[in-house]
Design a binder for these strands. Structure first.
Lengths: 245, 245, 245, 245
DNA sequence: CATGAATGAGCCTTCATTCAT
DNA sequence: TATGAATGAAGGCTCATTCAT
């Protein structure tokens, strides 16, 4: 039984290792640049072995995406447990988002790469479903916090707008910022561009605009961010510092 | 010389025709689904002829992108000439952006598709530079309006924020919204999602938050939008209505 | 020793079981569709175990064929013991042939499939020889009956023909009929085609033509056929009825 | 136009050449032994070129079969025009059959090889239909002659048998003989085996048995055969002698 | 100039066989 | 002895690019 477990463990480790390699290749060479021969060469396993883990190229890519999604999902879920008022919890999710992309900068680009090609036709159903579930649950976490805010009276959406507008705006700004960062668009003519800080500041103004209390003028969200980093994500940040500087 | 001119004209027309076909194919079948055989078949020109216009596949794709960029650049430039106060001119650019994506919905997706793959290594320098110039000039138009606003006293950026923050926020929200729309992400749990209207509303709140005057509470931007559509883009909208409903 | 015997028995049973599975797969999916992974899966033995019984894929297929041949050989041998005149014994062999293909319809197709591919280069010598022996002995049985007929005066081959001609004709007609049946050739334009009955009638005319006495006009071979079925092959037919209806 | 024609001619010639090579390979190495790399190597064309003529491996094989069928169809059709009584015309078809297999001995084996594997799923519809048409027309030719014989009173099928029985018997004996010959089954214990002559003699007895007049005892079919060879197939035989000895 | 057949490197995938556990 | 993961040669097919006509 011990033997069996070791085998299984090795099998799982190898799978992780292959996914790592695929992720890197996806980043460095794009969807087309990722090919099974190169994966075999990079991992120093044979092609046959690769195919024992993944039914086809698309399934391997789906596995890369799935891991990404699950990592983010876990971060979001933890962020939502942050003790404090609703806007603090949302802020913690913002930290989770920042963390996710700073610790796994690859993943943002991988998402871009992979959302574009028709991977899902060929990937295994199992992985497709898992990805969908993961995506949905991330969004649900944010929706949950916003609803809590409304219920508690912290959030009164301005006339003419809806909660969905708010969610859409948050999401769009986050996605857009990542896209800009990831695609390496040179912020022409910007002095001293620090996209992450820009995003933070814009989020603040945005939430204030939506009347989500307490306003940034009356509450020290910088401290909330700091607390979230220390209390919720200290471990992840430490890990990240180790592997990604 | 007349003969030469006619020839040149025909040559240019054919190039345009091929780019059209490539654009469509890129949309319908993705980067991988675009191949030179199909282009030749679709245009009813021979492959040899295609290669007389474009040095390689990537160069053809770059041409598709370039045309996209130039179309948007022209729209933005015209928007910036909108007569009115600075925030009205920015609003007109917003209309240009909306128009661009509603009239050429393809282009948003093409941008996604192509930004991801390493086209620029092989495309001709000429086209690469033209693309860069186009991108930069779009951004410059917006920057110009913002600077005018500051100069005229309409815009006083809040403490702790900069003009760059504002530009980044606008850009991120626009890009993010397009990404979400284009990737067909199902807005799970949203009632009645109309991304374009959501984007409009979020823009309004956002500019108010930045203290860009006159505020939306004191100025009828709905009318500004309507004027921009009628006075600046009437032609484009008419064209769009014809070909895209 | 008892242990050893049990082991040996189990080993032999497993071999039989694997051959069964291979036979089925050969039928359902053809030569190419048979592969060792699938065999392992179907039998629920590991590939290593399969390879302990068969040196290679071809050897396994040879084993399928060999069993086929041995089954037919046994039927022919029993048929030759049918008590009666020489032509009755030949008729009994005809019944054996009919029975073989009606009870094991699979085997006809397997023969087709396997005769075509170069299995014999790689199959073990042992099995190749056994197959050859089996084939030869079937033919020998028929030859024996024919020679007995000549010796007893029942058969006087017509001028210009030889005993070999007769054997060849019988064999060709049988093989040809099976081929036609097995390949599912649609008997275009035939009313009511019953290949087996057609073969029976043609055999009758054929033997009459060769002057093999007693002629079908003076002897009730329908009854001979019936007797052969009941007295010699009752068991097989019962078995067949059970599993193949 | 002359240029175009030459190109087309070369294209057609090359196609023929590839089919030749495929036929040989099919013979020498079987269905599995035929592969596109080897075809490319053998023809000294690139794989791409091969694929410009045939959509896939199966389509190439189908082309080999189609040519076979068309050759036989042409021979049968010519044989049916042989001037003489109905049984003479059938005899001429017998000569066509003999000729077909002696001139193109490959084709018999190719038929065996190819009937077994599922080629038709992937081959182009065009070729599949052409094959079916060819097959049907061969059979129709024989049926036509038999019906003429009945109409003219030359053939009165014996009690208990039908015209279909006769056709089936002829067909089976022919197919069976070819199978035996082609599979190289050693005619164990046969003295001096000449399968073609055996087949001839068996056919004679068979037709006599069916009361197809004039009987072989009252008509010199050897001469009919000779006439058919000289008057109908002289050219083919000369060609055959040239290319196949 | 236009054409489109030819090229061949490159890709995804399969599967018989081996061998460490 | 049984297992099944690992191997890697081999095969079908695609497609960007070239070049003779």
């Amino acid at each position: 039984m011990a033997t069996l477990n070791r085998r299984q463990r090795e099998f799982a480790q190898r799978e992780e290792f292959i996914i790592d390699a695929a992720g890197k290749m996806l980043l460095e060479r794009g969807y087309i640049g990722l090919n099974m021969d190169r994966i075999a060469e990079a991992t120093e396993y044979s092609k046959g072995t690769i195919y024992q883990h993944f039914t086809c190229k698309e399934d391997l890519i789906a596995a890369v995406i799935l891991r990404t999604i699950q990592v983010r999902g876990a971060l979001f879920a933890r962020a939502a447990t942050f003790p404090g008022r609703s806007r603090e919890r949302l802020t913690a999710i913002g930290v989770a988002d920042e963390l996710f992309y700073s610790v796994y900068p690859d993943h943002a680009r991988i998402e871009q790469v992979t959302k574009v090609e028709s991977i899902w036709d060929k990937a295994s159903d199992e992985r497709r479903n898992a990805c969908h579930t993961g995506d949905t649950s991330c969004m649900a976490v944010v929706q949950g916090v916003a609803r809590d805010a409304v219920a508690s009276g912290d959030l009164v959406v301005p006339q003419g707008c809806t909660l969905d507008d708010l969610l859409f705006g948050l999401w769009a700004m986050s996605v857009g910022a990542r896209t800009i960062i990831v695609q390496g668009v040179p912020l022409n003519g910007f002095e001293n561009p620090d996209p992450q800080m820009m995003l933070h500041r814009n989020f603040q103004l945005f939430l204030d605009g939506y009347n989500w209390k307490p306003f940034s003028t009356e509450w020290d969200y910088a401290r909330t961010i700091e607390r979230a980093r220390q209390e919720v994500f200290a471990n992840d940040i430490r890990k990240a510092g180790g592997s990604h500087a």
